[in-house]
Design a protein around this nucleic acid. Structure first.
Lengths: 109, 109
DNA sequence: ATCTTATATAAGTTCTATTTTATGTAAAGG
DNA sequence: CCTTTACATAAAATAGAACTTATATAAGAT
């Protein structure tokens, strides 16, 4: 699975986005992250694993606790995808402008 | 369902992202969009419906054809979510810096 | 050592998304 | 009119993601 797939699949879940939002305020343990949700701890652990595999969070060890923190670089694939898309869009607009300037109506390939 | 949910759910599928990439080059009909995929036309039609409901594409009528075009404003919810997240991150880094400057080690709430 | 706290993993279930097959509709072409 | 082309919709199958219950592990507290 491509990086961008993992990124977007991870972000597509509201619980995981809420977890990221929480982590944007600072580190938190699994239990702290689980608290706001009406959901069991294993469910949260699974969400964390998805986020970790997507490179969106990292975890350390602090005795029995496993604090999580956000790793902003994990958003890079999404940034790249977005700017790619927008670059292509602009290129296609530029082509369209050229054609219109020539008075030549654009046609499909 | 919140806007950002629809946006990210739509983007989480590789077929749909490929469709958007194709549309970044310019308008295309359903058949043209379906061609590159080993997938039936109804499947593509369904993907297009998801993209449309997310506000990522729009469709017009041209006789029997239904050309699709990208609507870049559909990415606004994602842009907003991303900058929100990053704003919070920076705020929390700022707080951390303050505390460190005071020589006061940060603690959990 | 034992108990507790914090977390992970496994198995199973339920829910939702993707895809296909089959069929319907609407416009254009003969 | 009848056929074809381009697409939509419905129903059903499949696949996959999310969640729960039950259990395991590992570190700290007693």
């Amino acid at each position: 699975m491509a990086l961008i797939d993992q990124t977007l699949l991870a972000l597509a879940d509201p619980t995981r986005r809420a977890i990221l939002a929480r982590l944007a305020q600072g580190e938190a343990t699994v239990m702290e992250l689980a608290a706001p949700f009406r959901m069991t701890q294993p469910a949260i652990s699974h969400h964390l694993k998805v986020l970790e595999k997507a490179g969106l969070i990292a975890r350390s060890r602090e005795g029995t606790r496993r604090p999580c923190r956000l790793t902003p670089v994990g958003l890079a694939p999404l940034d790249a995808w977005l700017s790619d898309l927008r670059a292509n869009l602009e290129r296609s607009f530029a082509r369209l402008d050229d054609l219109l300037a020539e008075g030549d109506p654009p046609e499909e390939t």
